Simulated assay, not measured.
Amino acid sequence: MKKSLLALGVLAATSSTAFAADYTDGDIHKNDYKWAQFNIMYSVGEKPYGGDGNEDHDYLEMEFGGRSGIFDLYGYVDVFNLTQDEDQKKANGTDTEKMFMKFAPRVSLDAVTGNDLSFGPVQEVYVATLFNWGGNDGVDNANIGLGSDVMVPWLGKVGLNLYAHYEIGDKEWNGFQISTNWFKPFYFFENGSFISYQGYIDYQFGMDKDIELDSGSGGAMFNGIYWHSDRYSVGYGLKAYKDVYGLEDGVFGLETTGFSHYFAATYKF
């Protein structure tokens, strides 16, 4: 069964009663769906920024997700600087990454056990994983922990995950990460299109301080306002940073705290 992002958004916004995932009947595929889209993005003021040139850049994002049996999946692949503009932050060079990938599969414990594990506002419980793979910048890490879908007033169903953080290159565990994401349609047009508030928070804490100026914690929050039809979307996002990646603002001459702006145009498959 395939559901469009539009259909999922309308369902989330118009359901007056929230139901927990129930797999006690043994049918673990009854809630299956999938989606994929291409986003043309432009970033202004992305952090961290080293003050070594233009901090703006374009990129193509191939974003996907869905549900199949016990698996819940979200991910994307970013390809930077499509125009090969040497003045952009992501200008192609030996020390600059060209691609970045995030892959975040979760395994439903409700579906695996055949039991309803919901309680209070928690609708479903998962073993959650998150993988980040970069290019020449050395961003390669894995995260594992517990995840959940939680009903939040007005926002509706929100993903909430707590991970232990593992640095693949250094081969060591280093702190924790808490992540949450949401998608809330809040204004509907007569033609069925709608405007949504969507975003996420990724916050790391409990990390070792390798140098005196490391903060040991930090993260970012993305707040997006998007117009959606069944096939297209356009939107703007404001991203707020605080010592992102656990780097204290100013260390190594980097700006790691502040704001950036994102502009997006999307085609949905």
Rank of each mutant, 00 (worst) to 15 (best):
L146F: 11
A142T: 04
I144L: 13
L82T: 07
V77T: 14
V139C: 03
N161S: 14
N81L: 09
P153V: 01
L117I: 06
S193C: 11
D149E: 13
K89P: 09
G147H: 00
V127I: 09
N92Y: 15
R106T: 09
Q204V: 04
Y166F: 10
V112M: 11
D110K: 02
F80V: 07
L117F: 02
A104V: 15
G138M: 03
K98E: 14
M99N: 14
F80I: 10
H165E: 01
T83W: 07
V127C: 01
F131T: 10
L160K: 10
G159M: 05
R106G: 03
N143A: 14
G199N: 03
V150G: 02
D140I: 06
I201K: 01
S108P: 06
W133L: 13
D202F: 04
L82P: 02
D78Q: 15
I144D: 11
N174F: 00
H165W: 02
P153T: 01
W182F: 10
T96E: 07
N174T: 05
R106V: 12
N81I: 04
N115V: 03
I195A: 10
T180K: 12
N136R: 05
V77D: 10
G169F: 03
V158L: 11
I168K: 01
T113G: 08
V127T: 04
R106C: 12
G138S: 02
P153Y: 00
V122N: 07
D87T: 05
D137Q: 13
I168F: 00
N92S: 14
N174L: 08
D149Q: 10
E97I: 04
D78Y: 15
S179T: 11
K102V: 14
P105Q: 04
P185R: 01
G169W: 02
F194D: 09
D85L: 01
P153N: 00
D137V: 13
I178M: 11
I168C: 04
A142L: 12
G156A: 11
Q123V: 08
D116Q: 07
N141E: 14
F194I: 06
G114I: 07
Q84W: 12
G199A: 05
S148W: 04
Y197H: 08
E167W: 09
R106Y: 07
T180D: 12
N143Y: 13
N92D: 15
K102C: 12
K157R: 15
L146H: 05
